[in-house]
Simulated assay, not measured.
Amino acid sequence: MTPASFPTELGVLTCLALLAASLWIPYIVGVNSETAAGDTFQRPGDLSQMRPWVHRAYRAHLNLIEQLLPFAILVLLVDRLDGFNALTYWTSIIFFWLRVAHAAGMISGFARMPLRPMIFTAGWVCCLIMGYAVFAARF
């Protein structure tokens, strides 16, 4: 596969995987900057005893993984079925930016109710659209 033929959807999936692989960093920074004494080998620590942003960083990482896995499987299925089109192109780009906004908003605390669930739900809709693309490519 030449760089010119590398589908954008797979590039976005790569960026999402790198985001998921790196999103543990804010949580670890927060945990290690806590002044509360305790068992340093307890993982995860008692989140209720940590600053709110540390707890939100942990949840942001879990939320990304919850949506990344199904989305990744669907993108790989569409790739396998040679079904990439304008819909999958824009869906993958929108999904990526939704996930970035969700993580940044959750960790910072700016994405409060109802914004954060709306972003998560929009990501779910992107998964549904990519699922549709699998069936559209298959039949």
Rank of each mutant, 00 (worst) to 15 (best):
M1N: 12
T2I: 07
F6I: 12
P7C: 06
P7I: 02
T8Q: 08
T8Y: 08
E9P: 03
L13S: 02
T14V: 14
L18W: 00
S22R: 00
L23R: 00
W24I: 10
P26F: 07
Y27I: 07
I28H: 12
G30C: 07
S33F: 04
E34L: 08
T35W: 00
A36T: 15
A37D: 11
A37E: 13
D39Y: 10
D39L: 11
T40C: 08
R43H: 14
G45S: 09
L47M: 08
M50V: 03
P52S: 14
W53Y: 12
V54A: 14
H55W: 11
A57G: 13
Y58S: 13
R59G: 08
H61G: 15
H61M: 15
N63D: 06
E66C: 10
Q67L: 09
P70K: 06
F71P: 06
A72L: 04
I73P: 00
V75Q: 04
V78D: 00
V78Y: 03
D79F: 13
N85K: 07
A86W: 05
L87F: 05
Y89E: 03
W90H: 14
W90S: 10
I93T: 09
I94S: 12
I94T: 15
F95D: 01
F96E: 01
L98A: 02
V100W: 04
V100E: 01
V100A: 03
A101N: 02
A103C: 08
G105M: 08
M106I: 02
I107Q: 01
S108R: 03
R112A: 12
M113E: 05
R116K: 14
R116P: 07
P117D: 11
P117W: 10
P117L: 10
I119R: 09
F120Q: 05
T121W: 09
G123W: 02
G123R: 02
V125W: 00
C127D: 11
L128S: 09
M130L: 09
V134S: 09
A136W: 07
A136M: 08
A136R: 13
A137V: 05
A137P: 03
